[in-house]
Structures are given as structure tokens and as C-alpha cells.
């Protein structure tokens, strides 16, 4: 289990890079890396040499989130102005512009089958589900108000939703909130299942293990990475070591490792069995907002990991 640095691109964007994801390969193109930045652009990169494939404009204010459809043909990007732009990867034609005021848009993710786009809805304390055929809002999964809360209480502001993740089966969905709680929903029944506690500060990133649908990994401003049993409501382990906020987590395609990006400017690789970081990459010089494994591993040659940072750069590593 190790990371090998492959290449980096300084000044990939004009400003902080805040989001990244991998576009699955299609019959026309191999897998591409998609990044979003404070400079209001979304860029597509060829991972082979980190050459720029295209720059998408059209967003105002910073791009906070990008999502790739499992087909690899469609992608979505969202910015601080709460607009989601859904576009055709190949042509860059806008397929849809989504907004659900007053809900903001933070993290987004397509479900594994590609029928639904889940969007973390910030202050609405809910996850918005968009149908990808009609591009209509089909469901709002709201976090229930805590018991005993008076209706006059100011909203559910502590439950401000920042992050979202689909279970590999697509049946479950988890979202992380400002107060550190993680809410788990049954999507088909549109039902809130339970809350996972343990973090005490905003949960900015969530990821299910691709192999074990029970295992949910979370990263929080409290500097910890937690591994939960999302169904059994138990905390497997809590891993500390980052010296600042954990901004992004992802589980490797083989399910054996966790990658994390942090405000402490490092990318770390964790061995969940040992509950310890096995490797620390220090090539970034500012907060690392995104780490993402390429979903389809390349077999023996391992799979790619991308990281993006406030230092405007993108880095690629080989995970094996």
C-alpha cells in the first residue's frame, strides 16, 4: 500500500482549486480529471500528462463542487452562487441549470446508476435529489429537527449540510453537517434512518468504501477521520494525525486504503487496519481541498489519485 507521486501542474487554475473528480472513460475518451476553482472555471485534464483538455466558463463566484456521471458523458459543476450547471462533457453544451432556492449547493454526487444527482443543500438542512432524465427535483431528504426543538428556533442551522455520499449500492445516502453529525437516509423510501455522531466540527467530506457498503469514511474540521458502520451506527475507528481540518477523504478502489487532504497542506494515505497514516505527501503548499481515486483501478499498475489545493496546483499519484 503506497502512493507514488507522478506529476504536478503548478498554476493549473488562476486561483484556489476547490474541487476535483474523475470522469469515467467512455468509448470516445479515456478517463479525464475534472477540477473546479475559485477562478470561476471548470477544467478538464488528461491524466497522462496533465494537459488541459478544455476550460469551461459560465460560473460566477467560486466553483465549490464538481460531479461526474457514471457514464462519463455528463458532468455537473456548482458554484457559490448556488447554481448547478449540468453539461455534456464532450461538447460542453449546457444540459441543465439547476437551482433550488433558498438551498445553497455544496457537495454533489451522482448515484452509482446515474439516475439521480444528490446535492448537499447547506442551510436547508437537506439533500436535494435531482432526476437525471428530466433534470427535475424529485426529492428532498431533510434531516429531522432534533427532538424538543421549538418551532420558533432559528432553523436547523447546526445541521447545515456540507457533504454527501452514495453507498455503492445506491440504496443509502449519507450527508455530513456543520455540527459534525452524519445523517443516513434510505433513498428508496426517502426515509431518514439515523445519525452517526462522533465528530464535533463540520464534516466536509464523506466516502463509502466501494467494497463494503457498510463502511463510511468521514473527514472533519476536528482533524479526525472516522470510520463508521453506517448501518450498525457504530464507530469503527477514529484516526488522528492531521494537524488541521480534514477537508477531503476518499477510499481506494480496492477498499484497503483511505486518502485524505487537509488544511495542513498534506495528503495522507491511511491504513484502516492499523489505524494510522502510512504515508504523508507534502508536495502542496496550501490547503488540500480535494483528493479523489480514479474509480476504475488499472489492475496491477494500481490506480490514480488526484489532489487539488489552494496553491492552484493539481497533483497525481499512483496508488498501489
Amino acid at each position: 500500500m503506497k502512493l507514488a507521486w507522478l506529476r504536478s501542474l503548478e498554476t493549473a487554475h488562476q486561483d484556489c482549486v476547490w474541487a476535483c473528480t474523475w470522469l469515467p472513460p467512455t468509448d470516445k475518451s479515456s478517463g479525464l480529471l475534472l477540477t473546479g476553482s475559485l477562478d470561476e472555471t471548470v477544467k478538464l485534464w488528461n491524466p497522462e500528462d496533465l494537459s488541459l483538455v478544455r476550460t469551461n466558463t459560465g460560473h460566477c463566484l467560486g466553483v465549490v463542487s464538481v460531479a461526474a456521471h457514471p457514464s462519463g458523458r455528463i458532468a455537473a459543476s456548482a458554484s457559490l452562487d448556488s447554481f448547478i450547471r449540468v453539461f455534456d462533457v464532450e461538447s460542453n453544451n449546457t444540459i441543465a441549470t439547476l437551482e433550488a432556492p433558498p438551498s445553497e449547493v455544496w457537495q454533489m454526487q451522482f448515484d452509482p446508476r446515474g439516475t439521480t444527482l444528490a446535492v448537499a443543500g447547506g442551510s436547508s438542512a437537506s439533500v436535494k435529489l435531482w432526476d437525471t432524465a428530466e433534470w427535475k427535483l424529485v426529492s428532498t431528504l431533510s434531516i429531522p429537527r432534533p427532538e424538543g426543538a421549538k418551532p420558533s428556533d432559528k432553523g436547523n442551522s447546526k445541521k447545515f449540510v456540507l457533504s454527501v455520499a452514495w453507498s455503492p449500492s445506491g440504496r443509502q445516502l449519507a450527508c455530513g453537517s456543520m455540527d459534525g453529525s452524519i445523517s443516513v437516509f434510505d433513498v428508496q423510501r426517502a426515509k431518514f434512518l439515523h445519525q452517526l455522531e462522533g465528530h464535533t466540527m463540520p464534516v466536509r467530506s464523506l466516502a463509502y468504501s466501494p467494497l463494503d457498503p457498510r463502511v463510511l469514511v468521514s473527514g472533519s474540521d476536528d482533524e479526525c477521520i472516522h470510520m463508521y458502520d453506517a448501518e450498525g451506527k457504530t464507530l469503527f475507528s477514529s484516526m488522528s494525525g492531521h494537524s488541521s481540518w480534514v477537508l477531503s477523504v476518499d477510499v481506494s478502489p480496492d477498499g484497503a486504503a483511505i486518502a485524505s487532504g487537509s488544511s495542513d497542506r498534506t495528503v495522507r494515505l491511511w491504513d484502516p487496519k492499523m489505524r494510522a497514516a502510512v504515508q504523508t505527501m507534502t508536495n502542496h503548499t496550501d490547503q488540500v481541498w480535494g483528493v479523489k481515486f480514479e474509480a476504475v483501478g488499472g489492475g496491477a499498475r494500481g490506480s490514480l489519485l488526484a489532489s487539488v489545493s489552494d496553491d492552484k496546483s493539481i497533483s497525481l499519484y499512483n496508488y498501489s
Binding site: 459534525g180 445519525q195 455522531e197 462522533g198 465528530h199 463508521y228 451506527k233 464507530l235
Partner: peptide
């Protein structure tokens, strides 16, 4: 030992 998440905090 995994612990109940409600006790984790």
C-alpha cells in the same frame, strides 16, 4: 472495539 456512535462524542 467498535463503539456506538452516539457515545463517540
Amino acid at each position: 472495539q467498535p463503539i456506538d456512535s452516539s457515545l463517540a462524542a
